[in-house]
Nucleic acid binder design. Structure first.
Length: 507
RNA sequence: CGGAGUAUAGCGCAGCCUGGUAGCGCACUCGUCUGGGGGGCGAGUGGUCGUGGGUUCAAAUCCCGCUACUCCGACCA
């Protein structure tokens, strides 16, 4: 008899299902500090894997890691008008430096001359350093990245998707020319798209944000957008071409080869722990989490069956033998990550725990397997099929493990890709059809299909449609790079239009 | 910050209307039988019922305030 661990399936209530997955996979929980999360080992392990893979890609493209302060003087934000306006409503501000006891109550004391902002993003403070480092065109480009935490005082937090404090990487670069900086912003967006696809098995659309939805202070904002299982869009990464805006406000100036003084062109780009949310909503199922092998902290979990006490030693040494046999196997250039779960728990419970956590392969080994020199292999992506469990000869498993992990990674990508491709409507040509399509105000899943997903259609380019979009609860997610160039009708205004955009509900 | 809801054991809930000294399922501990799709049987551990006040002989229960959380909106990665 199958027992449901999740309280809600995706079809019953998608937002609750999302929370349930995080709980049953033991990835994170709400902290007693309001709006903040505790990232637990399985969730943090996934983040560490993301960091490892992406960090290599960032370094391969010529960037170095460094670290800038958590505190940013308030005045720095005043230097860039759009920037301060964009972030003003969500800042945490340090105004005091100590506590004193007043009538037994601890009260802030030692007011600071100038308040400090806990960084919501680091453009201003990094630009300040860049201005000291850059004197000559020979000092350019400067290509930096930092892994850090940031704080944005969100009103309605949701684990991984929107929390007051979150972890991210933020890259910041400065260049001598417009073209070079623009190219850098594009390059890093492609790095993100490749990372999402190949490491996370999350296919994304790439494009540019419309003018009214840019990063505050940017000339252009590029983004990768992923489709969640409920058809909503999640911005999974952004890359900004900042032009000379921050260079001018922070005075990043250099002498050119012609001897003239010029302002640098800067970029910034980032991805966050929100990607873990993207992973859950892309691959999770009604049993829990499913983690793609590339980012799985443990790709293979060995669960020994130890109930027969007379055979504990034999089973454990057989499990150890398996673990060491696997240690020579590799996947995508890295040693295969194997966990032998020897905790004092019921083996069936351990098996289900790793299933809920989404470990790609769970291997059970027991007395029977020693006799047959075999193992029981469970492939997380086949949970609803008969082949979920499979008895495999020991040597066959060891020699096939790389291929098995590759198949799981590919299966997850293919599923996500199919969902993305099947749920982009290209055939909506008039405002009437468009309004009808999005008339369903609540997003939900029917069977395995979202009720409402993406529409690829025309936009006139008018920037004063924000109200109209808001009333329909949709956004222009991006202006895709691959434009068709065809003529058509703007789905919002009804005017003639040539620009293709992606319309969708979003997180 | 606006709208709605919730708050009782680690988790999910009942009890509240009609006040009388705390209950169920899962989890956890011990024993036992099981054993590769989430066990069975038996015995246990665990709660000043979110918080402050009021009514009452008596409050989880009735009244008032506060806080937190969840969902919907606005805002955002």
């Amino acid at each position: 008899m199958k027992q449901m661990t999740l309280q809600k399936t995706r079809e019953q209530n998608y937002p609750e299902w999302y929370q349930n997955v995080i709980t049953v996979a033991d990835m994170a929980e709400n902290s007693s500090s309001p709006g903040c999360m505790v990232i637990k080992p399985w969730g943090y392990g996934i983040w560490e894997r993301m960091q490892r893979v992406l960090d290599d890609m960032i370094k391969e493209t010529g960037h170095d890691n460094c670290y800038f302060p958590l505190f940013i003087p308030l005045s720095f934000f005043q230097k860039e008008a759009d920037h301060v306006e964009g972030f003003a409503k969500e800042m945490a501000i340090v105004t005091h430096s100590r506590l004193k006891s007043v009538d037994g109550k601890l009260t802030p004391d030692g007011q600071l001359e100038e308040p400090l902002i806990i960084r919501p993003t680091s453009e201003t403070i990094i630009a300040d350093s860049f201005s000291k480092w850059v004197k000559s065109y020979r000092d350019l480009p400067v290509m930096m990245n930092q892994w850090a935490n940031v704080v944005r005082w969100e009103m309605r937090p949701r684990l991984f998707l929107r929390t007051r404090e979150f972890l991210w990487q933020e890259g910041h670069t400065a260049h001598a020319t417009y073209d070079e900086a623009e190219k850098e912003a594009q390059t890093m967006l492609q790095v993100y798209a490749t990372f999402a696809r190949e490491a996370l098995a999350v296919p994304v659309l790439t494009g540019k944000k419309p003018e009214f939805d840019k990063f505050p202070g940017a000339v252009d904002t590029y983004c990768i957008e992923a489709m969640m299982q409920d058809g909503k869009s999640l911005q999974a990464g952004t890359s900004h071409f900042l032009g000379q805006n921050f260079a001018k406000s922070a005075n990043i100036k250099f002498q050119s080869s012609q001897g003239t003084q010029e302002y640098a062109y800067t970029t910034s780009w980032g991805v966050t722990t929100r990607l873990i949310g993207a992973l859950i909503m892309t691959h999770g199922d009604d049993e829990g989490m499913v983690v793609p092998p590339v980012v799985a902290p443990h790709q293979i979990v060995i669960v020994p069956l130890l109930k027969d006490k007379s055979k504990i030693d034999a089973v454990m040494s057989y499990a150890q033998k398996l673990k060491s046999a696997l240690s020579s196997a590799s996947f995508k250039g890295e040693r295969v990550r194997v966990k032998l779960d020897d905790r004092q728990k019921e083996s069936v419970d351990k098996m289900w725990e790793w299933t809920r956590k989404g470990a790609p392969l769970v291997i059970e080994v027991g007395p029977r397997d020693i006799e047959n020199n075999a193992l029981m292999v469970r492939d997380r992506t086949k949970i609803n099929l008969k082949e979920w469990k499979e008895i495999v000869p020991f040597d066959d498993f060891v020699s096939s493990v790389t291929e098995r992990l590759a198949t799981i990674q590919n299966t997850l990508l293919k599923q996500a890709e199919d969902r993305l491709n099947k749920n982009i409507r290209n055939d909506i040509k008039t405002p009437g059809e468009f309004e009808k399509y999005f008339s369903n105000s609540n997003v939900f899943i029917e069977g395995d299909k979202p009720s409402v997903a993406f529409v690829r259609g025309k936009w006139s380019g008018d920037n004063d449609i924000a109200e109209k979009l808001k009333s329909m609860k949709i956004n222009i997610r991006c202006i895709p790079f691959d434009q068709s160039g065809t003529q058509g009708t703007c789905l919002i205004t009804g005017k003639p239009a040539t620009v293709d955009v992606i319309y969708a509900r979003s997180y």
